[in-house]
Write a protein that binds this DNA or RNA. Structure first.
Lengths: 199, 199
DNA sequence: GGACACATGTAACAAGTTACATGATTGG
DNA sequence: CCAATCATGTAACTTGTTACATGTGTCC
């Protein structure tokens, strides 16, 4: 039921389904994501429960928009969820699962390249998070001076950044370790012990 | 389709559905999880595709077991998946979403407690990962001496550990920052500016 | 006129969870 | 005999993805 409550939280400021997806693609990207085709029916259902109201309004550019806003009972439901305590789901990180089975590929060089690709993607994500952080820091200075809501949002961003940095460090460490293995087996090959292509 | 391939990977050593779930609860816990009720039908489907074979055998303790093993074509499919390059899904971290909206609760003290609960859970997970790491390090010494397969599995474990440590550091940092806010508002209340219970 | 961003939706499917049903064996 | 662990499975449901359908307004 998390998506329900996340939409409730986002709709403290009125927004359309389309707006919400943009939020998932930018400021909420490091903790949640939903497709438009999931967002639209959920909004309808939440309106049915009385947690949202909607109105249509003309778009500045494009067809009519349906703009949703949270009701009092919707806000109460959001608070109830927040008071439940932290929700933990299961982690599902497919590329880590892939690494776990990588010895099927035989060649440490390919594993090194694989981790290199992971690094590229993580570095890109880190860059987008840092691009969100910079203007916030410029506007307010030290986080201790932030208003509460901005501090909480800033803190979730910080976690995203710190975890991404940890991942990058891990990639570098792992690549170095794999590179040593590649060099070592090349050395053995040169010494005539093993032919590199025949293995 | 990740679960299909993860089961294929795990079944390089023959195992039952029940065994596989135990693996998800222990050594695979930091990158994937699946319920028994999901595992059983998937195994059946993979057998139908010719990627697994099964036989029944008596259990040492309990009813008959159905033991699966990967076939040549199953192994080829696993390799194909590994060669596709790293798979990235969307992160969904409900407790971070909760923090993002925490200003609805009004009180920084409650947010601090919330992050404290997060810390407790993450610390427990970190402890279980470190408990897996210790005997591996004891057995092999330096990771550079590990055989390839063990190095890859060890590396996934290291990522889990390093990310968990980064999360713990973030919790401590965040709690400190929130604590300062709690103390600050208590100070204001003492100075007669705001009555703490009337807000 | 065509590409692109804006905008809303449905349908079919895949993945994952929760609840239920059944039964063997072991240890207290 | 009761609880716990071992063991396999189905059914109903929820959640999330991919593909499709439709149409507006802007810029080149």
């Amino acid at each position: 039921m998390s998506l329900d409550h996340i939409l409730l939280g986002m709709l403290r400021r009125p927004a359309s389904g389309y707006d919400l997806r943009r939020e998932f693609e930018s400021s909420a990207q490091h903790f949640w994501y939903a497709e438009l085709s999931q967002i639209y029916p959920v909004l309808k259902r939440l309106e049915g429960k009385g947690w949202l109201t909607s109105r249509t309004e003309p778009s500045e550019r494009g067809p009519e928009r349906r703009v949703y806003e949270v009701t009092e009972s919707g806000r109460a439901e959001l608070v109830r969820w927040l008071e439940e305590g932290p929700q933990f789901g299961h982690q599902r990180i497919a590329h880590l699962a892939q690494l776990f089975f990588m010895d099927e590929l035989g060649d440490p060089g390919r594993v090194r390249d694989f981790v290199g690709e992971v690094r590229t993607v993580v570095a890109k994500r880190l860059a987008t998070l840092e691009a969100i952080e910079a203007p916030i820091l410029d506007a307010h200075g030290n986080p201790d001076g932030f208003p509460d809501d901005e501090l909480y949002q800033f803190s979730t961003l910080r976690l995203g950044i710190e975890v991404a940095q940890a991942r990058i460090r891990w990639c570098d460490e792992t690549i170095k370790r794999l590179e040593a293995r590649v060099v070592r087996s090349a050395g053995l090959a040169e010494a005539g012990t093993v032919a590199p292509t025949s293995v």
